[in-house]
Nucleic acid binder design. Structure first.
Lengths: 352, 352
DNA sequence: GGCTGGTATGTTTGCGCCAACACGCTCCAG
DNA sequence: CTGGAGCGTGTTGGCGCAAACATACCAGCC
């Protein structure tokens, strides 16, 4: 990065290896403009002429040069996605869904992974994408939007997925509050005196919203609010917290902010001799594909990432194509899926 | 797709919203060529001049236009990645690693997800990428390379990750054979009479290589070769197979071709009252982050996706930059990780 | 017939950038 | 003191494409 590019760029102009419109035009005996019209599927071309051009394209193996096209149109046919690592299941699924939706709209996806939510890392990602090679950007779960030096130019369309809503950008998100509330209500409804919470990292907006909804649901129900434990979304962090919680006999129900942490949590409880759901009920969030096959099958909140991806692309295309009348926020409703990791508390348990 | 683009392209040329080199040049009082030299970090620019240009860039918010640059250099600064869905952990991890490595080299990553390994789907992906907008392509786990109509132009650099080795493209792969062999040997070494295998889908090359190594290791050891079951990498398919295997008392050890299937398998065995590893030992492949926290913690084969991503990018850059002396194949050694899901068979069990 | 309006096609132009070359200067060897 | 090499910089041209404008032709109409 930022090294001397002399050597790399020293290669002289490469020999033409792709035919251009002019080549096709010459072969078909028309002007290059007509070739352009055929390539862009314009209707005002005679059927016979179109045929000639198409067969010339075919035999020469012509492909339009996107760079030249982008230069003249100012559009790139590409969307940028900034996301924080493929380790998080949700991020990977969201990216896949965005890519699918983008392909439907004939856009390609330029992916920038960012390892850390540090200013430098995010700035680098933005700089790379903002080299004017994308028509818009989807930010997946970023908390960095308010850092002034990272502000994107106002002319760049942006959609934020699964992130903070306290900014001006259009936004697609799960209704985290509703999902978390449904889990906590479910557990309280089973008869638990209260529900403990293993939250995601404090700098994650989704984690904060889940924690807030958990707290509100408890207070609304008049249940005591136990201290919050924080993990980092990993099973490992769930395991560490689980070792702690297992030592507290008053813990009868735990809501983990994602399924991976719930896995670690259940493992720790098992090792400590606390059965799930006999002694402790555990619920997760995400409904990863493996959730039905955990031991026990995990009660969790299902999130439809496909829909999120679709909405992200739709909102972005609205901006790119200048439509301002569409919605600027979309919420996707998560659905509680009750399996076997939650049950009523043992009679007499859970008292302090 | 292939619709009339008239309306979309009808927008007249958008007002210039980005400053160009000429603007910077005017502000700095130099020629645009000098701006170009500064932008490309050439050394033959006077320090004072460079300073003036840089501050002009800064105050105008100048970003080089990659399309224009690509048009004249014939290079795009982008790598294409074709992969089959983000559902499979391995694919997601590999993509993330490729993106990281590409960023190190100042390339961006153009991601094309393909849902199905059908000819039409893959062709569409290739067409999109081959619109001369990437400098090279990484194919992650594709079996479609030999389909004649999909052949890529010889001028396009390609690297195949985790896929078939029976083709001319440079290749990065795990030493699947070695990994599978180490699992099977481990189980045989524990005293199991033989090891059953839950393979990945028949059209996956990685799955085939794992199955072949499993078979060879058994025959080399003089162990009987049980029939193979096939899954689709999902926990669900592992579960279904597990219900079958649980009914066969002679099954004392199973090698699942990935961790997700092992999870489903263990769940089915548990439901059928067969304990792991007491009655049946189970081993997986991949070492997903959650493997240590399954019940029981899963013996599996660790794969370092970061290294695979790095190698892919390195081999691709070799081709793009015209280096022909580098290696054309790289194998990454997977490592057996023994946890608690494997144990010696119960005395007297496993006889037919 | 001359006019209008529409359609198919061609010509010109310029997007922003960089390679190639030209230029003027300095420095040093011969 | 002259020739040539090296350096910083400017000038020119053209990459492939599509927008804008120009042209040719035809049909229908008063």
């Amino acid at each position: 990065m930022a090294t001397d590019n002399t050597t790399r760029a020293r290669r002289s102009r490469p020999a033409r290896q792709w035919p251009s419109m002019a080549d096709v035009a010459a072969m078909a005996g028309v002007s290059s403009q007509t070739v352009s019209r055929v390539a862009n599927n314009r209707q005002n071309v005679d059927a016979g002429t179109r045929e000639k051009v198409l067969s010339a394209m075919q035999s020469l193996g012509y492909r339009p040069n996107t760079a030249a096209r982008a230069l003249v149109t100012g559009r790139f046919g590409a969307l940028g996605v900034v996301s924080f690592g493929m380790g998080a299941h949700g991020n990977a699924r969201t990216l896949g869904a965005i890519a699918d939706a983008a392909r439907e709209a004939d856009y390609s996806v330029n992916f920038m992974g960012v390892r850390a939510q540090t200013e430098a890392a995010v700035r680098h990602a933005f700089q790379h994408l903002m080299l004017q090679s994308v028509d818009g950007i989807v930010l997946v779960e970023s908390q960095m939007l308010d850092t002034p030096s990272l502000r994107l130019p106002p002319s760049m369309p942006v959609v934020v997925a699964d992130g903070d809503t306290g900014h001006a950008y259009p936004n697609v998100d799960f209704d985290q509050a509703h999902g978390a509330q449904s889990v906590v209500s479910h557990l309280l409804g089973l008869g638990h005196r209260t529900v403990w919470h293993l939250a995601g990292p404090a700098d994650s907006f989704a984690a904060r919203r889940r924690a807030e909804a958990w707290r509100r649901t408890l207070t609304d129900a008049g249940a005591p609010v136990p201290p919050v434990a924080y993990g980092d979304w990993s099973a490992r962090s769930g395991y560490r917290t689980g070792l702690d919680l297992a030592r507290r006999p008053e813990v009868t129900a735990v809501f983990a902010a994602n399924d991976q942490m719930a896995m670690g949590l259940m493992r720790a409880l098992h090792e400590a001799g606390r059965s799930v759901p006999g002694d402790v009920s555990v619920a997760g969030f995400d409904d990863i594909a493996e959730a039905p096959y955990l031991q026990p099958p995990l009660t969790t909140v299902h999130q439809d990432f496909e829909v999120v991806g679709k909405h992200c692309v739709a909102l972005l295309l609205d901006q790119i194509e200048g439509r301002t009348d569409g919605p600027r926020r979309r919420a996707v409703e998560p659905v509680l899926v009750v399996r076997s990791s939650t049950a009523p508390p043992r009679p007499g348990s859970g008292t302090t």
